[in-house]
Design a protein around this nucleic acid. Structure first.
Lengths: 242, 242
DNA sequence: GATTATTTGTCCGTATGTATA
DNA sequence: ATATACATACGGACAAATAAT
């Protein structure tokens, strides 16, 4: 694209350049993690001063789309973690399958009564005691997402202890006599990060999050767990289909 | 509910009011998209000053649960449009199936050579002439998303004219001799809105967007169209599974 | 089209309790 | 104990946008 910025458009030139580069990055014109053209090359391509390009790159860096390293160049954001959505969706298996080191830990839990929404999702009466688990999920020691899961407390009495022992929800459920489960539905939504989630994920408050709400059921189709996971938008991508 | 805030509870009054209203919203006490009582009415109901109610409403607005419009009132967030992801995903059918009026129009198009990414997705050589279509999609006259679609230009010579005649991508493709296609893969990502998309969607720049990248193939499995759709985050939710 | 009522948005100020230095 | 800063809550006035008359 040899499009020059329009100086009579009423939009700042640096903003036009930022938009153009953002579009290029969005469609993968630069390979993930790859180096962008040098600032000098970009300023020649757009026909502007190098400082104008730098201003545009600063915006993209603030958005997390590129990262500048002094003396090396400007690099496109590394590839997102593919998160396939299917009947058998297990975070640790997904991460390991992409040759990255899965991690995660329990960052909080509580017992609370089911509100109307949760009761409907889990197929229990309102007010039923639920166990709420807050977990942080990592790949290669960088936080990927925070997840909140609700389960009927009476069904999994020793889940928290089992989770602390095994470090995995799947393994902890197996210890509670639930050897297998599958994902029935997933809904995906985008939201702006609140201060709490932003802190866990190491992103700015207001940064976009990819939010999934999923219902896991046991082999007989009975609802087992409703989960709401918030992923840092620039670190994962949901994948549906082959 | 005539419950008055408890001033000796150690919890700020505005927070108690926010919680009460959030509970009302959760159980659907106000119809989705419906108007809440005026600030004056709410302040009377809770027995507090109007400013205290405004503080509570500001929290709910930041959470995206309500939206205030000067001179009109405060409105509950309308229900999100369910966007099921499957082999046969057609925007207009989805919208019509939820008893809303689908709309859409071509807001731009261009011919351009395929870059490396697009060439790989579409299974063509780099530099192949592609047709790029920019479409705006609406439900009940409110913008839902903007989509960019790329197709091999040589394969669909009269697509733009057909689209302007029929107003639909599916119908235009049929006119080009491609009666059917199916969605092979969908990837979902969250991003912050740029100025351009924000303008089309009527959201603030930086607002979260739900972005899908999808590959449509013809009946014989050959790639037909690669599309990148940006949805206003508070107006759609992707649905995977039953 | 003009006027008026309704409703949210913004600004001024005052008082009070709480945590901190 | 005292002083300071901060969040909370209240009261009033007006501006701005909308809707109804």
């Amino acid at each position: 694209m040899d499009i020059r910025p329009d100086r009579s458009a009423g939009v700042a030139v640096w903003r036009q350049i930022a938009d153009a580069l953002r579009a290029d990055l969005a469609i993968g014109a630069f390979p993930p993690g790859g180096r962008l053209p040098t600032e000098a090359a970009l300023s020649a391509r757009f026909g502007v001063n190098r400082h104008t390009v730098r201003r545009a790159l600063a915006v993209l860096a603030a958005e997390g789309l590129v990262r500048a390293e002094r003396g090396r160049g400007v690099f496109a954001r590394p590839a997102r973690l593919d998160y396939p959505i299917g009947p058998r969706t297990r975070f640790s298996e997904i991460v390991a399958g992409q040759h990255r080191e899965p991690g995660g830990r329990l960052i909080g839990w509580a017992e609370e009564p089911a509100n109307l929404r949760l009761a409907a999702e889990l197929g229990v009466g309102p007010g039923t005691r639920l166990l709420r688990l807050e977990t942080l999920r990592e790949a290669d020691a960088t936080p990927i997402g925070v997840a909140t899961a609700w389960l009927e407390a009476a069904r999994v009495p020793a889940l928290v202890a089992a989770h602390e022992r095994t470090g995995s929800v799947t393994a902890a459920l197996a210890a509670c006599g639930i050897p297998d489960y599958r994902r029935r539905t997933t809904r995906a939504v985008a939201e702006a990060a609140g201060t709490e989630d932003a802190g866990w994920l190491g992103v700015a408050p207001g940064a976009p999050l990819l939010v999934t709400e999923s219902l896991n059921v046991t082999a007989d189709g009975r609802p087992l767990q409703f989960a709401r996971a918030r992923f840092a938008a620039d670190r994962v991508q949901l994948v549906v289909g082959s």
